[in-house]
Amino acid sequence: MLELPLVKGDPFHHVMEAILDLSDVAHVVCTTRGLNLLAVDTKHLAIVSLLFPAEDFKGYTCDEYISIGIPIRDLVNAIRCGDDKDTITLKVGEENFGTITLSFVSPEKNTVDYEFRLVDAKLERFRLPDRHFLRSKYQGSVKMPSVEFRRICKCLSNFGDEYGVISVTDEDLTYFAKGTDGDVYVEYKQQEEDTTIFKIDVREPVRLAFNPKYLNTFAKVFTLSGQVKLFLSKTHPLMVECKIGQKGRIRCFVAPKVEP
């Protein structure tokens, strides 16, 4: 049995809204320890992974291992219909396994229940590379304010949705996007005095081409946290990470684009 309390505008809802146009299904694994969500875009170029430990989820109840495929559009449509003040609970029970119930309770105790079919109740358990593996593959990381990151992603995506480049050296971080009528460059210099807000950490310079559309999609999710951290590799997907709550985190991966 699973009971997942949700609030309109909470990180879970935010992630669902963000990946609405990228993927049809969110693969969710719940255990007594917490929730893991994984969604892959239809072209297999971007992945979002969300980890919510049970202690960060007030009212979270799960007494067994549950692996479900949630139809993202159905869930988002239902949440959008709810009121901001409603208490929302996502339920998967033993009797109705194969369906999901989303219950909305207003402050006046009026209720609305949505019931929809899970995409696939018996999904395989996905394994993402662990933190140590990932760290060994990345030659550089950059910590920066998430609001600033979102602004850049929006700017790059507006300019050129298809081709962008992130370059990092121990002195600066640059973003570049190629548009149809011109190019855009954004440059950040490492400030020696204050590394709490912006910090570059590189073993060797990295240059990575990517599709700005995906980063722009994910960037709004990262504003749930004050800081965002980018991990760059010459050969592996770009990873962007932010912390949610005490121990939760969101990670997005964007496949590198082969340079034209």
Partner: peptide
Amino acid sequence: SPTQKTLDRFFRGH
């Protein structure tokens, strides 16, 4: 729907 193979391929890089 993705499979573990899709994910492995994704993370293996290019």
